[in-house]
């Protein structure tokens, strides 16, 4: 099962129009992400990390080439199909947490399950379990504006994994956190990756994140500069 391909890109190109010209954000990206991977897409700002994650997350479409998510061609997905796939199989973690401000922590975590029309009892159990994983049960009734950055990001992670998605996409999840909170959150994600076999795909340029990754994809100017598997005791080069 671990060899199951969850995301695949073939000659993926993404260009953004800039006046009469177009700016290439991604060029000829050929990647595969397997089930249970803990992968980081690293690179400087403007290298195309977020663009790649957006396409993998069905929030954007490639200009050329193909991207397949769970066997489905992303460019051919309708809005509704894209929403369905995100709803059922994807979890998102954002740099700025993106918690819904008028909901409590519990309600924020509960939100994806409401969209799945899950029964209340089942929903409550899943939410409490996610909050326990993130060690934030005591904040269940608190609104996001009363949380610290680390707590808010733990809630965001709880929200992303509450429905036990196949893939979690995290865009710079530790960018706004201090070192202590970053390590704590990354360790929680490593544990979840092990326990739930969830595929984690990060974009980051944070050194603290990199040491947790088991695969590092380096993007430079929209191209894959390197793609490395990281062994516990060292680094094994894939390409």
């Amino acid at each position: 099962m671990e060899n199951e391909v969850q995301v695949k890109t073939e000659h993926l190109v993404k260009r953004y129009p800039m006046g009469a010209e177009s700016f290439p954000a991604l060029q000829d990206i050929n990647l595969q992400f397997m089930k249970g991977e803990f992968t980081g897409i690293v690179g400087p700002s403007g290298s195309g990390k977020t663009t790649l994650l957006n396409i993998i997350g069905t929030l954007d479409k490639p200009t050329e080439g193909e991207a397949l998510l769970l066997g489905k061609t992303i460019s051919k997905l309708t809005h509704k199909e894209g929403a369905k796939i995100r709803n059922e199989h994807l979890g998102f973690i954002f740099q700025t947490y993106n918690l819904l401000p008028v909901y409590t922590v519990f309600e924020n975590v509960e939100f994806p399950l409401l969209l799945l029309s899950m029964e209340k009892k089942e929903r409550d159990e899943a939410v409490w379990q996610a909050l326990e994983w993130m060690q934030i049960t005591e904040k269940a009734k608190v609104k996001p504006n009363q949380l610290s950055g680390g707590q808010a990001q733990r809630v965001a992670i709880a929200r992303s994994i509450v429905k036990k998605p196949k893939i979690v996409i995290a865009d710079e999840p530790t960018a706004n956190l201090d070192a202590k909170n970053s390590h704590r959150i990354l360790q929680l994600m490593v544990d979840l990756n092990k326990d739930l076999q969830t595929t984690f795909i990060f974009s980051t340029h944070d050194e603290k994140v990199i040491q947790y990754l088991r695969r590092i994809i380096n993007l430079e100017d929209g191209r894959v500069a390197s793609d490395e598997l990281v062994e516990l005791n060292g680094i094994a080069t894939q390409e």
Binding site: R86, E88, N98, R159
Partner: peptide
């Protein structure tokens, strides 16, 4: 928030 709702799976 709209972007988040869409990302979370709302059409």
């Amino acid at each position: 928030e709209i972007g988040t709702l869409i990302a979370l799976g709302m059409t």
